[in-house]
Amino acid sequence: MKLSAAKIILIGCGLGIVYGLLNGFSNAFLLPSAPIISLRPQIALPMIVGIIGHPLAGFITGFTGNIIGDGISGFGFWKFWNWHIANGLMGLIPGLIRYRGITRIATVREFGILQVSIILACGIGVGFAVVMDVLFLHFMIFPSSLHAWILPAFLTDVVNGFVLVPVALVLTGAILITLETRTIMMITALLIIAVLATAGSITWAVLDDLVSHQAMVRNFYIAAIVSVLLLVIGFLASIVFVRKMTDPLTKITRAAESVEKGSYDLETLDGISGRNDELGRLARVFEQMAGKVLEREKKLQKQVEELQIKIDREKQIADVAEIVETEYFRSLKEKARKFRAS
C-alpha cells in the first residue's frame, strides 16, 4: 500500500489508541510469575499495521499505544519510555520486509522471512528496552528482572506475533493461499499447537505441585525458553522440508507456464524427472507431452513457412490456350468489347 505521510500518522495514531486501550485492559491480567507482564495478543496489531500499512505507521501504533496503555494502568505515561520505543520497533521491523520486495506472501521463503522478521522484531525491541534501562533508567534488577520481566515479555510477544500475524494477513489477503503457503502454515500451526500445549501443561498443570514460588518461576522460565526454541528450530526445519516438497511442484508449474507462453523452457525439470516419486513421474509425463506439443507446433510452423504458391506455368499456358484459342472465345471477347463500349 502506498500511503501519504499524513495517512501514515493518522493510521498509526488511530490504531495506537486501540492498541493502548487493549494494553490497558490486558495489564489487569498479568501472567503468573511475571509481575508486570500480561499475555498480550494485541502485540500483533502494530506488526500487522507495519506490514499491511507502512513500517512507520506500525512504529507509531506501537509507540503511542504503549504510552496510552501504561497511562491507563497507572505506570505513568513517560516513565518506561524505553518500552514505548521497543513497542514501536516491534511494529516497524516486520514492515521492513516490503523493502526485500515482499508485498504479498505466496511462497515458503516469503513466509519464512515474515516469521523470522517477527522474532527479530521482538528480540530487537526487548533488547533495546533492556539496554536503555541498563544505561539510563536502572529500573531492572538482575538477574531477577530477567525472568520477571524481560523473558516473559520477549516470549509472549514472539508467540503472539508468530500465531496472530499470519492469521490476520491471511484474512486481509496479504498472504496468498498457495500450495506453498498452505503447507507451511499447516505445519506451523501443528508446531505451535504442540509446543504451546506442552509448555502450557508444564507451566500451569504442575503449579500446585511446586513447593516454592522460586521453583514455579524457574519452571515457567524453562518451559517458555524451551517452547520458543522448539518453535524457532521446528519452524526453520519445516521450511526446509516444505520447500523440498513444494519446490519441484513450483518448477513443474513454471515449466507449464513456459509451454503456455511458447518458450518451452523445460530445463527446470532436469532435477525432478530423475526422482522416483509421483513428482518425478509427473515431470517425466509433462516433458513427454510438452515435447510432442513442441514437435507438432514446429511442424505446423514449418508448413506455414513453406507456404508456397507453386504454379506450373507451362500447364497454365496450355490450359489458357485451350480456352482462348476457340472460335467461341474470340466471338465472346468481341461481344464483351462491344458491351463495354456501349
Partner: peptide
C-alpha cells in the same frame, strides 16, 4: 492456386475492368 492462375489469365484476355481475389477458409495458423 493452379486453377486460379488459369482463370485470372483468361479473365484478363476478356478485359474485365475490375478483378479481385478473395482467399477463403484460411486456417488461423
Amino acid at each position: 492456386y493452379q486453377g486460379t492462375a488459369v482463370t485470372v489469365e483468361v479473365s484478363r484476355q476478356l478485359e474485365v475492368p475490375g478483378m479481385f481475389l478473395i482467399v477463403n477458409k484460411v486456417p488461423d495458423v
